[in-house]
């Protein structure tokens, strides 16, 4: 076990030495990998931010339930009970009189309201469901519409649906982008490792002649790929962090102009870790493909 660890440690050291042997090309590869990973990751981060933004606003998403104008007091209290059972504490009642008074308060409406022979407005319930998932809201609407005494349930979720469809599309695009850039990353690693292998041809030949196993010969190259990928992932995380820090103030200002508060969040620690890990994994894959080419020359 100790010997095994020692061998891997030695390979890691040799891998690091190989990377620092040509610092410029290593730096460039790491930067390329970092940028390649930062792009889809940035897309993901944008979507994540938009999702929280969407969730924030749809929390204020309201549904209006209008009663039949002629509905009796009993029907109304029945609906009230059923609402409390379905959406506890997520609704409030607006009586037709209150609605009329609200209308009156609006500028220029007072006269029109005064000219009405009688109150044309129905009793209504304003619903604010905790679960703002568009599909859930849609089924809720259908259920409520069927209740006796209910004239109409209005759901202003068209924009939520559009927003949701947009997020879905965005997510698909990000996934495609991630796949494309992953392939690119593997190719970049494949190439750097291939160049390393070519540069070390002499050492590989000698090592083989004096009893090195394939595993011994390949190990440092694989570690090189892993190190390079991991550093690329770290670069990507740092790029995202820098980008968020640069964008946060103007975005917040923009949100303030619309009367909201919104501070975009950067990559979380877990996200950054995931970037480093996937960089390492893809680097390992690229290196593996590359060292497969080392055969008895």
């Amino acid at each position: 076990m100790k010997a095994w660890l020692q061998q891997h440690l030695a390979a890691l050291v040799r891998a690091a030495r190989r990377l620092t042997d040509s610092p410029l090309s290593t730096l460039l590869s790491i930067l390329v990998i970092g940028i390649a990973m930062a792009l889809p990751a940035a897309g993901y981060l944008c979507l994540d931010n938009l999702k929280t933004l969407g969730a924030n606003s749809s929390r204020a998403q309201q549904m209006s339930l209008f009663m039949n104008t002629g509905a009796s007091e009993k029907t109304r209290s029945d609906v009230e009970k059923r609402l409390e059972a379905t959406l506890p504490d997520q609704w409030r009642f607006v009586s037709r009189d209150a609605a009329l008074r609200q209308m009156e308060a609006n500028e220029g409406m007072a006269e029109i309201v005064a000219s009405l022979p009688r109150n044309p407005l129905p009793d209504a319930f304003i619903l604010e469901p905790d679960n703002a998932d568009p599909e859930h809201l849609e089924t809720l609407r259908a259920t409520l519409s069927a209740w006796p005494g209910v004239a109409h349930v209005q759901l202003d979720s068209a924009w939520i649906k559009r927003f949701d469809a947009f997020l879905r599309l965005g997510r698909l695009a990000v996934h495609l982008l991630a796949v494309i850039f992953a392939v690119g990353l593997i190719a970049v690693t494949f190439n750097t490792i291939r160049l390393q292998v070519l540069g070390q041809a002499e050492e590989i030949e000698v090592a083989r002649l004096i009893g090195a196993t394939d595993a011994f010969i390949r190990r440092p190259f694989c570690y090189s790929g892993v190190l390079q990928g991991a550093l690329g992932g770290l670069t990507a995380a740092l790029l995202l962090l820098a980008g968020t820090l640069a964008l946060a103030p103007p975005v917040s200002r923009l949100a303030a102009l619309y009367g909201g508060t919104f501070a975009p969040h950067g990559p979380s620690f877990l996200h950054s870790l995931a970037l480093v890990a996937s960089g390492a994994a893809l680097g390992w894959l690229g290196a593996q493909l590359s060292v497969r080419l080392i055969r008895d020359q």
Binding site: A3, A10, E202, E205, V206, I210, G211, T213, F216
Partner: peptide, 24 residues
Amino acid sequence: QKLLFDRSALENVLLPLEIIGLAP
């Protein structure tokens, strides 16, 4: 001879020992 010219004399001699995984 097949000596490696990118490292010192000592490192050339160390190579076979690294291969068998001897402690540094």
